[in-house]
Nucleic acid binder design. Structure first.
Length: 175
DNA sequence: TAAGTGCGTCGTT
DNA sequence: AACGACGCACTTA
């Protein structure tokens, strides 16, 4: 019907790891989402294995390998293209900045704000981190509070702790 | 020191 | 107009 939102087709494919079954989402532009085990949200998707476009298959294979690397705390060699078109300009700027944080390193929300030239938007940076559609690969888990605390994590602080630990980081825990 | 309160700031809904 | 995955100054114990 007229006025209907563009019906973006995405493919949701599982990725089994020793940490559980993740779900990767692909659009025609690339990887557009990653969900932690047990958090598969209901979303539009078409993924009859038989009619999977070759390109999606390729991206899925790449993502699978990359995820295993990332989960072991190492930088993935190759990633599929990332489709970040769901984000606002500000969010995309934040996400780009996050990708420049090396494994094993952390930044405070304020430092990220500074990195994108919005010194005072540290709080908004937190919001953009929460809107990150591709955690792990876009390492929002490396953003912690200025006082060394963990800060937050949409998918659960346990995951944030685990991801950081895999990279050799053990931030101070609130008691 | 540690813990709690108040408030400026700013992107998003 | 309200709400945060913040940060900082300041107060109390």
């Amino acid at each position: 019907m007229p006025g209907m939102k563009n019906d973006i087709i995405t493919f949701a494919l599982p990725i089994s790891t020793t940490d559980g079954d993740f779900v990767a989402r692909f659009s025609e532009k690339g990887l557009c989402g990653l969900e932690f085990p047990g958090r598969a949200g209901r979303r539009r998707n078409r993924n009859r294995a038989a009619q999977l476009p070759p390109q999606i298959r390729r991206w899925h294979a790449l993502t699978t390998q990359a995820l295993k690397h990332a989960l072991s705390g190492r930088r993935p060699k190759t990633l599929p293209p990332l489709d970040l078109s769901s984000g606002t300009r500000f969010q995309q700027a934040v996400w780009r900045a996050l990708r420049r944080i090396a494994p094993g390193r952390t930044r405070s929300y304020a430092e990220v704000a500074h990195a994108i030239g919005r010194v005072r938007a540290m709080r908004a940076v937190g919001g953009a981190c929460g809107a990150n559609p591709i955690p792990v690969f876009i390492p929002c888990h490396r953003v912690i509070a200025a006082d060394g605390g963990l800060g937050g994590f949409s998918s659960g602080l346990d995951w944030k702790r685990k991801l950081l630990a895999r990279e050799g980081i053990r931030p101070q825990e609130p008691r």
